[in-house]
Design a protein around this nucleic acid. Structure first.
Lengths: 209, 209
DNA sequence: GGCGTAGCTGTACCGCAAGTACGGTCGCGG
DNA sequence: CCGCGACCGTACTTGCGGTACAGCTACGCC
């Protein structure tokens, strides 16, 4: 974690993205000025516009980075769940628990969901940005729905359910949990909601309960 | 739906709030310019600042109006649930169903949750605005938790639950459902999520399932 | 009937942030 | 040594939030 005191040549783009992500999650994209970013990154305004055509391009790069990173993390957790159990239900429940634990272990509250924060907040994003988060949501829906299919095939659900809606529930709960936690400044809300979702899945499928 | 062609004297404040709410939910508060509001409302810039000290005051008035309106609507639905059944669980389930039906009957997708849209998006709001939505969340948590107490007293839950976290789940699901519905432009997501919450409550408490 | 006040209009101006334009500099690989 | 990518510097335009005043009008109230 080297300080930006040294205006090291090269890598300015990465520094900008880092600063912009933190600032956006803290106070919103609109409230994050280019001037504050270039001051923090130690580059000039021309330097900024050399890397990003305009603020919109920054938003796009930001969310691409964010979504890719999220995907790696979550994939890792559920892959670990698959390693620890062959049962589709158990491995999914393990994945959820690992996720909740990871969230609970964050020193502060989860900084926020960039994708969600961009859903509100300006049309500006010429549709490209919205399309990006849209596709990301759909990918998660498909991925979760697939797991629910495998689970339902082995454990008939207690009540009939719509796999897509159940997958959406995870996304909605995570997003809403982040928002709620942010508003109430309570880091425990988000992991608690993930565990509630886990509990719901158990009540739906787990015959042992 | 009368056009604002007639610059009717009086009521400009109300017109501003109406326009500002729609614009904020569509593209964000930051992207909503005062100039576009006064153009739409047919008043001058001085007129705007006569009603609102600054943009922050507009945000505050906006969210006050929004939260009060929400409260009236939701209270009405759950009061109706209480009328239709004396059983705490049943009346709550009825309230949730009425809520889901109301959401499903909206011609378009729910326009969005102002409280949530203000959680991200600028520190600007001198804390007053954040405090408002914060208190609103806490009030809902208390109100729902009370109902869960009554329900749990009569129907012991299938698994131990935290009443506050369960109340938060409703808020998180609604907020996340709105966001998801907005992003995917699918009006059915939100009511589906409310019904999922209802389903969870049933699985937790209803002995008949 | 005079008087204040709410609800505006109009004009002029400031500061800041986004974005444009364009020329110059430095280091590195071919 | 040439070009190109990664910048720096300066200067300028535009739009928006916000300030500062001066004035106008309809309505309610003592």
């Amino acid at each position: 974690m080297q300080e930006t005191a040294t205006p090291k040549r090269g890598g300015a783009r990465e520094r900008i993205l880092e600063l912009a992500e933190a600032a956006t999650l803290e106070k919103g994209f609109g409230a994050t000025s280019i001037e504050e970013l270039i001051a923090g990154a130690g580059i000039s305004k021309s330097g900024f516009f050399h890397h990003f055509r305009d603020k919109n391009a920054l938003a796009k790069a930001l969310i691409e980075r964010y979504l890719a990173n999220d995907e790696v993390i979550l994939d890792g957790l559920f892959a670990r769940g698959d390693e620890l159990s062959e049962d589709p239900l158990q491995s999914f429940l393990i994945g959820l628990k690992l996720f909740a634990e990871m969230l609970a272990d964050l020193p502060e509250a989860h900084p926020g969901c960039l994708a969600a924060s961009f859903v509100y907040q300006e049309q500006l994003f010429d549709g490209e940005v919205r399309a990006l988060s849209r596709r990301s949501f759909l990918r998660w829906r498909a991925r979760f729905a697939e797991r629910f299919d495998a689970i339902a095939a082995k454990y008939p659900p207690r009540v009939p359910i719509d796999r897509a809606a159940l997958a959406d529930m995870a996304a909605a709960l995570i997003d809403g949990g982040i928002t709620l936690g942010k508003s109430l400044k309570d880091a425990k809300i988000l992991p608690a909601q993930v565990l509630h979702f886990r509990n719901y899945v158990r009540l739906l499928f787990d015959p042992a309960i």
